[in-house]
Structure formats: structure tokens, C-alpha cells
């Protein structure tokens, strides 16, 4: 009881204080203060800065016309001109033009509450009046929804013209049994060209080199090191392995090959993508050993005929980044 009384007194006291402060402050708006700081010195200074800006600007034009448009000099001329202009404007705003501090009332969005509320009520009422006398509002609403849905579909449908149907497009690949492997200059890749530890970018013969599924990395390791799964036992003749060059994480080109020079103390041979360092084990047939990639690097079975490298079948999985619906582990 007494506690409540004390709390009440406190509130009364606070409200009184607030009221007194408000009353004291009434009419004590900071009066617009106005100073006229202009002096001959400041005016001369600003004039000098402006003339300097003009000279530097003209220098830009001259450099452009006569000095082969040297990028550095042009940049400096433009920067000096603009910098002097900035200095002139800022000095002028502080030391030449009248300095004043004004106070302005803000437009009120919420206060006084009653007035605003009345306006809101007015708008709401007006909106509601628009549907006066209609009995089957639900029906009309639903029909309107149906119209919007249909028209929306009609408006969105042409967007599909932008691209071809996905279908199997993301799985297309030039690799078939017997397709020759060629290098960047379209010359056939010979098995003897590659030494142990070598790394070569190769393509399917006759394919577009920009085709994501065409590019390969061909590497050579010692055949006895291989730990390929049994069904891939004959995919790497003479220790020659081929993988898709496109990382299965974010489809950057696999451009790094780590081949240990001292196998006892180094991790095994691996292909590394430079974008996010997804790392694939070469000996085990491209399984991921580090980094954000999940699917293994697709491997291409190889065969050697008359010394030339040929595909012995299609790639072991989809090329490039995973998409919703791609089969895992392939």
C-alpha cells in the first residue's frame, strides 16, 4: 500500500518535472543564428582555388589532345581539377556564404493521433464504400483470383522462350566408345607423349572445345600405384587416367595437379580446383578427398590403339556442377 503510494508520488514528481521543463523550454527555440563570415582573404583564396581547378581542367584537355592521352597524367589532371573544385566549394560553404542554423518543424505522420486516425478511418471507409451493395463478394474475389492466376501464367509463359528445354541437355556429352582424344591444337594424344607425373588438357576429337563435357585432364601415374574400383580396373592402361576437367562443385576448370616427388612423406597424386580447392584422388578414380565438392570427378575409360589415346566408353557421371535431380555418386 505504502509502496504503491510512493510509486504514485514518484510518477507525479516525474510528470511535474517534465511539465516544468517543457514550460521552461517553451518558446526557447534556438533562434536562427546568422553570421556573415566573408572576408577579402577567404574570397581571394576561393577564387584562386577555382582558377586552379580551371587550369587543371584545361590541362586534361591538352593532355588528351597532345600527349597521347597518358592514363596517369589524365587521371592526375582530372583529380587535381576536381579536388581544387571540391576545396573551393567547401571553403566557400564555410567561409564565404552566410552561416545560419535554422530550425524547422517536421511534418507529422502520427501526431496528433486523433487527426491522423480520422484520416486513416476516412480512407478505409471510402475504400469499403466502393463495394457497397455487393452480395457475392467471395465469388467475385475467387473469380478475380482465377483471372489473375491465368493472366499471370500467360505473362510468365513467354519467359520459357529464353532457353531450350532442359531435358537431357545438362547430361549431353561427346564421349563414346572409340572417340579419339586430341590436344589443344586438335592433334591426337599419343600415350608415349605423357611421362609419369604429366598433366595434359585434352578434348574429344571434332567437338567444340567450349563444350563443358568435352575437356579432359589426362595424367599419368605408375600403374602399380592405382587403387581403382574393380569395375574400372581396365580404365587406365599403362597408368594413363582421364577425368572431366570441370569441377563438380562450381564448374571451374581443374588446373592444378599435385604429384608427389617424394611419395613416402607427401599426400598422393590429386587434382585440385583453384576456385574453392576441391581435391580429387587420382588413384581411386576421382573421389573427393577435400573441399566443398560432393560428387566425384567423372572419369573417362581409356584405351590405346596404335599408340593413340581413345575413349573406351562414356564418362562415369554428369559433367559440371550438380543440379537438383542429378544422380548422386554418378
Amino acid at each position: 500500500m505504502i509502496g504503491r503510494l510512493i510509486r504514485l508520488c514518484r510518477w507525479l514528481w516525474r510528470i511535474t518535472i517534465a511539465g516544468v521543463l517543457l514550460w521552461l523550454r517553451r518558446g526557447k527555440e534556438p533562434l536562427p543564428e546568422r553570421e556573415l563570415p566573408a572576408s577579402p582573404r577567404a574570397e581571394k583564396g576561393v577564387a584562386a582555388l577555382l582558377v586552379g581547378a580551371g587550369i587543371a581542367g584545361a590541362a586534361f584537355a591538352l593532355l588528351y589532345a597532345f600527349d597521347e592521352a597518358n592514363t596517369q597524367l589524365l587521371g592526375v589532371a582530372a583529380a587535381v581539377s576536381l579536388g581544387l573544385l571540391a576545396a573551393a566549394l567547401i571553403v566557400a560553404s564555410h567561409a564565404i556564404v552566410p552561416q545560419e542554423t535554422l530550425s524547422e518543424e517536421r511534418p507529422r505522420f502520427a501526431d496528433p493521433a486523433a487527426e491522423r486516425e480520422a484520416k486513416v478511418e476516412d480512407v478505409a471507409l471510402r475504400a469499403r464504400e466502393g463495394v457497397d451493395g455487393i452480395t457475392r463478394r467471395r465469388l467475385l474475389g475467387a473469380a478475380g483470383g482465377a483471372a489473375a492466376l491465368g493472366l499471370g501464367a500467360a505473362a510468365a509463359a513467354p519467359l520459357a522462350s529464353l532457353g531450350p528445354r532442359v531435358g537431357e541437355r545438362l547430361r549431353e556429352s561427346p564421349w563414346r566408345d572409340g572417340r579419339p582424344v586430341v590436344d589443344e591444337n586438335s592433334r591426337p594424344v599419343l600415350a608415349d607423349d605423357l611421362t609419369v607425373g604429366a598433366f595434359l588438357t585434352a578434348f574429344a576429337e571434332g567437338s567444340d572445345k567450349r563444350d563443358l563435357a568435352s575437356s579432359l585432364v589426362v595424367v599419368r601415374v605408375r600403374p602399380e600405384e592405382l587403387e581403382l574400383p574393380p569395375e574400372r580396373a581396365d580404365w587406365a592402361p599403362q597408368g594413363l587416367l582421364a577425368f572431366s576437367k570441370i569441377c563438380t562443385h562450381a564448374q571451374c576448370a581443374i588446373s592444378l595437379f599435385r604429384y608427389p616427388l617424394f611419395a613416402e612423406r607427401s599426400p598422393g597424386p590429386a587434382l585440385v580446383c583453384p576456385c574453392h580447392y576441391s581435391t580429387f584422388d587420382v588413384l581411386k578414380g576421382g573421389v573427393r578427398i577435400f573441399g566443398p565438392a560432393v560428387r566425384p570427378l567423372p572419369q573417362l575409360p581409356l584405351k590405346i590403339e596404335a599408340g593413340r589415346l581413345l575413349a573406351a566408353g562414356p564418362l562415369s557421371g554428369a559433367v559440371g556442377a550438380s543440379w537438383g535431380g542429378v544422380e548422386e555418386g554418378s
Partner: peptide, 23 residues
């Protein structure tokens, strides 16, 4: 006048820095 001059001054200063960097 003061704020307009100051703001234009800032514009010129931003442009000056960008041209210095670009050059």
C-alpha cells in the same frame, strides 16, 4: 547556400578521388 555548396563539394571530392584512383 551553405549546404548546397558543401554537398557539391563532396561530389567533386568523390569524383577527384575516383579519378586519382582510376588514373
Amino acid at each position: 547556400p551553405a549546404y548546397a555548396l558543401r554537398s557539391l563539394g563532396l561530389f567533386a571530392a568523390v569524383a577527384a578521388v575516383l579519378f586519382a584512383l582510376g588514373g
